[in-house]
Design a protein around this nucleic acid. Structure first.
Lengths: 115, 115
DNA sequence: TATTATTACCTTGTAATCCAAGGTATATGC
DNA sequence: GCATATACCTTGGATTACAAGGTAATAATA
């Protein structure tokens, strides 16, 4: 039942991660809960989604990480690189134009050549 | 380079197909071009996307098809069933709430517990 | 003290689905 | 005659979300 929701969520975890890290450095477990909290539970990506996204973004040079001990707990904090900032900007643009296009079709506007 | 766009398009072809068929019966090839036209080219799903979606929806009882000859051309026309109408309604609701939740996070609102 | 829950990291396997590419066939335009 | 457009279809690859499971430390509870 994976993508089985057909849930309109492809690429969204990456966008959310980049957006949250724009404000401040965060660690994975914190990001998982921040997405839930800020969306009032409407969005809920598990660790099995977020951790691979973080690793992929770091591998691509969009993030940098630094391990830190806090209260005997080992956390991996992430921050955006300049490449990450650009990527966030690009993805946000894509998301905006895409959702607007979908909205246009949903509203049934733009009737080219009505049969 | 498949989902490589990370393009926020999962489930969107199905939604578009159902929405277009809400207005009138259409055939596959026509749907492919209607999506392009109505979105001013912002959305472009090939036949390799649309045909499987049509077959899947028909198998699920959301669509009914009827083959018809038009000008020596063989077309498969699709219409919504009552189940398809319900499915469109559900998907539209899901799409709306999901995109609104994403928008909320993007705007950075809802700051629960600022560090 | 023992036990559970929470924090915090991680990987593996499955399922879904988008997409490009290729394949068939007929009709139309040059 | 030949290329393009119409109209149907399937296959294989790549990506990705997700559940599930695994490790280990601290905090809370009984």
């Amino acid at each position: 039942m994976a993508g089985g929701n057909s849930n309109f969520l492809s690429g969204v975890p990456e966008l959310m991660v980049l957006r949250l890290l724009q404000d401040r450095e965060m660690y994975g477990y914190e990001i998982v809960q921040a997405i839930q909290a800020q969306s009032r539970g409407a969005l809920s990506f598990g660790e099995g989604v977020i951790y691979p996204v973080l690793h992929g973004l770091e591998k691509d040079g969009a993030l940098k990480s630094k391990r830190r001990e806090v209260g005997g707990r080992s956390r991996v904090y992430y921050i955006l690189t300049s490449r990450g900032v650009r990527r966030l900007s690009d993805l946000t643009d894509t998301w905006t134009t895409t959702t607007q296009a979908i909205q246009t079709v949903l509203k049934g506007g733009l009737h080219v050549r009505p049969v």
